Computed example of a mutant assay.
Amino acid sequence: MADPEDVMFSPAVKAEQARLGSRAMFEDRDWKTEITDDLRQFLSVVDTFFLGTASADGQPYIQHRGGPPGFLKAIGSNTLAFADFAGNRQYITLGHLKENDRAHLFILHFATRQRVKLWGRARVIEDDPALMERLVDPAYRARPQRAIAFTLDVWDVNCQQHIVPRYTEAEVAPAVDQLARRIRELEEEVARLKAGPAA
């Protein structure tokens, strides 16, 4: 496998880092090249991410992928996979991966303001029922068509700067339910007070 730093930073990027004074920050750093327990835990709550691919001549494309929390699953020490659901039928990602397997995953979890970047290679897997059974949540209402596996070269965590916290309906539901219960209790208490003492 290539040096993780060379996967992340091309010679032109390294030259810019040197020119702008940040090169020393990245030299001799212990880049992560395997899926850790921390990454697994992070992925267990992720319900959305972005997949970057490029054509053979470098034409880029970024596609949003969504599913139930934890739909991007670790299936080995350095492999992730997810079910590819029916979508807009452009098949740009599928076409790119036929001619260029380099890919990038960019994951933002707004509630915790975490940002994870993963570099690697992706491949389309069709007609593998056992894998699909591992990847598909039967309760999720979408039609899975195939799997996409991502073999990890290196990953990194970015700072939280400029990530505005946002929360899904499922994340705020417990707090809303608690408030609704408290409001009902107070309304009942107000009604009792208005009614006056029992005769």
Rank of each mutant, 00 (worst) to 15 (best):
M1V: 10
M1R: 09
A2I: 01
D3F: 00
P4C: 07
P4A: 11
E5L: 08
E5I: 03
D6T: 00
D6A: 15
V7F: 00
M8F: 08
M8V: 08
F9L: 15
A12P: 03
V13I: 13
E16A: 12
A18R: 05
L20S: 09
L20F: 10
L20E: 08
G21D: 03
G21I: 05
A24C: 08
E27L: 02
D30S: 13
K32Q: 15
K32C: 13
E34R: 13
E34G: 14
I35S: 07
D38Y: 03
D38P: 04
Q41S: 14
L43V: 03
S44G: 13
V45R: 15
V46D: 01
T48A: 15
F49N: 00
F50Q: 03
F50S: 12
F50N: 00
G52T: 06
G52K: 10
D57R: 11
Q59Y: 08
P60S: 11
Y61H: 14
I62Q: 12
Q63H: 10
Q63N: 09
H64I: 14
H64F: 15
H64P: 10
G66P: 04
G67H: 08
G67T: 06
P69N: 14
G76T: 05
N78P: 04
L80S: 07
F82D: 01
A83C: 12
D84T: 08
F85C: 05
G87T: 08
N88G: 06
R89Y: 05
T93I: 03
G95I: 04
G95Y: 06
L97T: 07
E99L: 11
N100Y: 06
L105G: 08
L108K: 01
L108H: 12
H109R: 14
H109C: 04
T112N: 13
R115L: 11
G120D: 03
G120Q: 01
R121K: 12
R121N: 09
R123T: 13
R123I: 08
E126V: 12
D128R: 10
R134H: 08
L135T: 02
L135M: 01
P138E: 02
A139L: 09
Y140E: 06
Y140N: 10
A142N: 09
R143Y: 06
R143M: 08
R146F: 00
A147D: 00
A147K: 02
A147N: 01
D153A: 13
W155G: 05
W155S: 05
C159K: 09
Q160C: 15
Q160W: 13
Q161S: 13
H162P: 00
V164P: 00
R166I: 01
Y167C: 04
E169G: 13
A170S: 11
E171Q: 11
A173D: 07
A173V: 00
P174I: 03
V176W: 01
V176E: 06
Q178T: 05
A180F: 00
A180W: 04
R181A: 15
R182Y: 02
E185H: 08
L186Y: 04
E187T: 09
E187W: 06
E189T: 15
V190P: 00
V190H: 07
A191L: 07
L193R: 15
A198G: 07
